[in-house]
Write a protein that binds this DNA or RNA. Structure first.
Length: 526
RNA sequence: GCCGCGUUGGUCAAGAGGUUAAGACGCCUCCCUUUCACGGAGGAAUCACGGGUUCGAGUCCCGUACGUGGUACCA
């Protein structure tokens, strides 16, 4: 009964915000490749928006000029495109709330920061980097439990709280570099409800006076995210769990600037962790363990090093989206394979986990294998064809190519597997595993294959069943066991012990190629 | 250190006080396949620990441990 009530109350709070159009945003910083976790954040934003017929906005948070990386922004949009996550509004897609790049909104933030100072919620701070270092050093030697710039230390610092108004004005007039810091009042509790974690409460005694406006006039994330979420009418804010500790700052900012009733509902997503060891999954783990962490290849513009992406190693976007969706979420049933449409229909924020999940590349590959089977080969034939071409095989006969794909797709996990599993359909194997034949090879078998060549040269029928029949009849006539002959035949056609049914292969590559390959191997056996 | 968040097999996970504690990946065995896969049938393996509350706890409460995040004029 009590639970029912909670659910009811929760749903009401939920619906109140629903009365306006749902608007969510993904707010990446253009600092490098797009990480798995980043894509999942986009995905959850997107699914939530689409489920509620809302808008999905992409806002570029490029307020840290020192970390700006050329090409990173375009790359992010390329990744979104590949994933099929199309924004409704963005730098690229336009929209009524432009500009969507924070660097172009610079002037906007300053007035809000000034307003906060005027209202007594923020103050100017003139401390230099060295002074801040000294402060922390001092706190450390004093054995203080916190090294933060907060109510305990701010009256010892060089800021407008301690300075006389005219002193502050003098510094300002003299063009002294300054930042604006939020003034957190001690002994208050900031409660809020997270859509995933439920009720959370922070004690302001543990919250520091975060910088809102930097000396270069740019806002920090804290100010920018609040101002833009308000201006862009964001209703639900999804972000990684790493933001949870700074949530009280944002809530206070909302309270001071726009009112808590306008604040979006927060959802702090669990982290994606390293498969082994501990910690957040990083690009380095991918390099170390041999799997990608980025959605697409990221060529570092500084050192030209390419970090591998899921796309390039042969993932299907459908599989990539699928595996990300179920990393930290499930619909409560045993279903694991979901299309984007199903995800939109079934996604629910309440079913997102609280705890982080270790990334498992083996499972990730399984999703790709499943999607290769599920999708019509036409969906990815062009990509596979490109793989063949970079490996020196040009495809002229598309129908034949599709047929081969169909024949081998069951044994493919990543797209390049089509090449390793299917190249012999297009050209004779470069090497023949002779050692797999030799031990049991004898004159009788040799004779059999000579006769086989003659028989097949004369035959007019070349379907897999015809080939099998004639093969078996000839084997019987020579009192040989079919089983002892099929492996040699396979090696002759494929080069190794793998692939679809050997008679299907013979049928596919054609009579001439089949005979040529047998002759070639026979010559090697001499 | 301090603060926050978390913790069901090796991994992802279902689980809303009463279940033989689902399912998936991976691993092992067998079947199918005269190859390799797919597929099918089995198997090993789990509620971090300690206290409560309750007739009954994986589920609720407290503590501990462990993990993780934050503690920047980075996001």
């Amino acid at each position: 009964m009590e639970q029912m009530d909670n659910i009811t109350i929760f749903s009401c709070a939920y619906l109140c915000c629903m009365s306006q159009k749902v608007r969510v945003r993904f707010a990446p910083s253009p600092t490098g490749g797009l990480h798995l976790g980043g894509v999942r954040t986009v995905l959850f934003n997107y699914l939530f928006a689409k489920k509620h017929n809302g808008d999905f906005i992409v806002r570029i948070e490029d307020t840290d000029q020192s970390r700006f990386v050329t090409g990173a922004e375009a790359y992010i949009f390329d990744c979104l495109k590949w994933c099929g996550l199309t924004p409704d509004e963005s730098v690229l897609h336009g929209g009524d709330f432009a500009p969507y790049r924070q660097s172009e909104r610079k002037e906007l933030y300053k007035q809000y920061a000034e307003q906060l100072v005027k209202d007594g919620h923020a103050y100017y701070a003139f401390d230099t980097v060295a002074e801040l270092d000294n402060m922390r050093e001092l706190l450390k030697t004093k054995g203080s439990s916190s090294l933060q710039y907060d109510h305990n230390v701010r009256m010892n610092m060089n800021n407008s709280l301690r300075l006389l108004p005219q002193e502050t004005q003098q510094l300002l007039d003299a063009g002294t570099p300054y930042v604006i810091r939020i003034g957190i009042r001690p002994n208050e509790f900031i409660p809020f409800t997270d859509m995933i974690r439920g009720d959370i409460e922070f004690d302001t005694n543990n919250v520091d006076d975060k910088v809102l406006l930097k000396a270069d006039g740019m806002p920090t994330y804290h100010l920018a995210v609040v101002v833009d979420d308000f201006l862009m009418k964001i209703t639900h804010a999804f972000r990684g769990e790493e933001w949870l500790p700074s949530a009280p700052v944002h809530i206070l900012l909302w309270k001071y600037l726009f009112g808590l009733d306008k604040m979006p509902q927060w959802a702090h997503l669990p982290l994606i962790l390293k498969p082994d060891g501990n910690g957040k999954l990083s690009k380095r783990d991918g390099d170390r363990l041999g799997f990608p962490v980025y959605a697409m290849d990221w060529p570092d513009p500084v050192n030209n090093e390419i970090t591998k992406g899921f796309k390039e190693i042969g993932f299907l976007p459908e599989a990539f989206i699928n595996l990300l969706a179920v990393l930290g979420w499930n619909d409560g049933t045993a279903q694991e394979i979901f299309s984007m449409e199903e995800l939109i229909e079934k996604f629910s924020i309440e079913k997102v986990h609280k705890g982080g999940a270790k990334f498992d590349f083996e499972k990730a590959k399984w999703f790709n294998h499943e999607w290769i089977q599920k999708l019509d080969v036409n969906n990815y034939a062009a990509r596979v064809k490109a793989i063949f071409e970079t490996n020196g095989i040009t495809i002229n006969n598309n129908a034949y190519f599709l047929k081969v794909m169909e024949l081998v797709k069951g044994r493919c996990t990543l797209l390049p597997d089509f090449f390793t599993q299917g190249s012999f359909f297009f050209e004779a194997p470069a090497t023949i595993d002779i050692d797999a034949i030799k031990p049991k090879w004898d004159d009788k078998k040799n004779m059999f294959f000579m006769e086989l060549i003659k028989a097949w040269q004369l035959s007019t029928l070349w379907e897999a069943t015809d080939i099998e029949t004639s093969f078996k009849e000839l084997a019987a006539a020579n009192t040989l066991k079919t089983g002892e002959l099929m492996l040699p035949l396979r090696i002759m056609l494929v080069g190794e012990k793998f692939g679809p049914g050997v008679f299907e292969i013979a049928a596919a590559i054609g009579k001439e190629a089949t005979i040529t390959r047998i002759v070639h191997t026979l010559s090697l056996l001499q």
